[in-house]
Design a protein around this nucleic acid. Structure first.
Length: 155
DNA sequence: GCCAACGTTGGC
DNA sequence: GCCAACGTTGGC
């Protein structure tokens, strides 16, 4: 499965779009993915240059907060071996790391496009993010959905 | 391989 | 803080 566009969830307490924009080269390592399906997207399908909807989750105002791009291929996520990290995974073998990350470069902040607004947009009714029970932190986005979200951003 | 128990996510 | 939904674990 390959896609040119993705949505990636970040808790703004940890890394908000402003934090990513303030980072060197506006680029942050996407640490903490601990779901195999999301990891496999990074490993098997995501390519440098793919578009990313930067989504704020688990916060007072969940929604799309910015536009970014995939900026690197995958490498092992060092937080899995850090006993002090909340993402520590003692079961991950150091010689065969279970968890990967890639770099994400923030391109611009958008106005906050909240969940209710996304749900209201007819072009987004099938968006994976909006499916009932969806918990995936990385989901593919279709070109039509990408265009619809960008149109909302500029509205 | 089944499935119950448990842990996590994430909106509200 | 609640709870629905889902993923993972581990006994059998």
């Amino acid at each position: 499965m390959s896609s040119r566009y993705w949505l990636m969830k970040s808790e703004p307490d940890e890394c908000a779009i402003d934090d990513a924009l303030a980072a060197p080269a506006q680029t942050v390592p996407w640490t903490g993915v601990r779901n195999y399906q999301a990891r496999n997207f990074m490993r098997d399908a995501m390519q440098v240059g793919d578009g990313v909807l930067f989504y704020h989750s688990s916060c007072p105002q969940p929604g799309v907060a910015g536009i970014a791009r995939v900026a690197s291929g995958v490498r092992p996520d060092p937080t899995q071996f850090d006993a002090a990290s909340p993402y520590h995974d003692p079961a991950s073998p150091p010689d065969a790391p279970r968890w990967l990350l890639l770099d994400v470069q923030a391109l611009r902040k958008t106005r906050l496009i909240g969940l209710p607004e996304l749900r209201n947009e007819p072009a987004l009714t099938d968006m994976l993010l909006l499916r009932k029970g969806n918990r995936l932190s990385i989901t593919p986005v279709t070109p039509a959905e990408w265009a619809a979200v960008l149109a909302l951003a500029d509205r």
